[in-house]
Design a binder for these strands. Structure first.
Length: 263
DNA sequence: ATGGCCATCGCGGATGGA
């Protein structure tokens, strides 16, 4: 199985790039089985279900006009879909959970677009913390029922300074605060592993680069998109990496896809 | 020192992102 996550910053704009990337992956020998997408910025009725169907994918999604929006794209039909966090009232479409049937054992997949948080001390930061509390409860509950679980998406949090191009300058700024990292640590303490760090990665491996100031070219980025796996899932993990190729496209997303290969 | 880009909505420029 190959999993991937990609914040596309508007599926309306990026759909051709997503389809191109999926076909490139297939041509390279390992086609993507499950892709989590974030920042669709599309109302539900505008989701390009037909385009994905023609590419050989089923989909479930939770969209909203203008902002946010998440989807799971899968080669096989997805089951037991849950949208957003049960019990956490939220106007924003940020989470989607589904089961991927598999002969060797089903996979439970959660795709998330975590709140940005703006800056410590703001209303939006408080919302991010409350959302993370609710997410942790949900993931704990899901892990109890589904041992083989993958949590992936745009977390909008760096694990540590290795994920930051200039840790000194960005110390305690958004994505890098101790409060956010503490939340991320509590999430992993449920029994989840940061799959990318199971394998050696190139120096300065990031998943997001500012559109401004040639940040991508200058390797000034952050690693804020992650794939976390449960212990039962981790046994099957073969490789994990970031594909920076799509960041070189014309009119790229500011994020690059992260992928995970399992056996 | 400041802001530098991009998408959305909607037709100017504000808002949000990270």
């Amino acid at each position: 199985m190959k999993f991937a996550t990609w914040n596309v910053n508007s599926l309306g704009v990026r759909l051709p790039q997503v389809l191109e990337w999926l076909s490139q992956q297939a041509a390279a020998g390992t086609s993507v089985d499950v892709l989590a997408l974030q920042e669709l910025k599309l109302a539900d009725e505008k989701f390009p279900v037909e385009a994905f169907r023609e590419a050989g994918y089923h989909a479930c999604w939770m969209g909203q006009k203008t902002y946010n929006g998440v989807a799971l794209i899968s080669r096989v039909p997805l089951g037991a879909v849950v949208r957003n966090l049960p019990g956490f009232a939220d106007e924003q479409a940020r989470l989607i959970t589904a089961t991927v049937p598999c002969a060797g054992g089903d996979w439970r997949v959660i795709g998330g677009y975590f709140p940005n948080g703006q800056a410590p001390g703001t209303e939006k930061f408080d919302y991010k913390m409350r959302w993370l509390d609710a997410l942790r409860m949900w993931v704990a509950q899901e892990m109890a029922q589904h041992p083989r679980l993958v949590l992936m998406g745009d977390f909008n949090i760096t694990f540590d300074d290795q994920d930051v191009w200039d840790p000194a300058a960005l110390r305690e700024t958004i994505h890098c605060t101790s409060d956010e990292r503490h939340q991320l640590a509590r999430l992993t303490e449920l029994g989840l592993v940061d799959a990318l760090r199971l394998f050696p990665q190139p120096e300065r491996t990031y998943t997001w680069w500012d559109y401004r100031d040639f940040a991508f070219r200058r390797k000034r980025g952050l690693r804020i998109d992650h794939i976390l796996v449960s212990a039962a899932a981790r046994c099957h993990v073969k490789a994990c990496g970031v594909d920076v190729g799509p960041r070189r496209n014309e009119r790229p997303s500011d994020h690059a896809p992260v992928w995970l290969l399992t056996g």
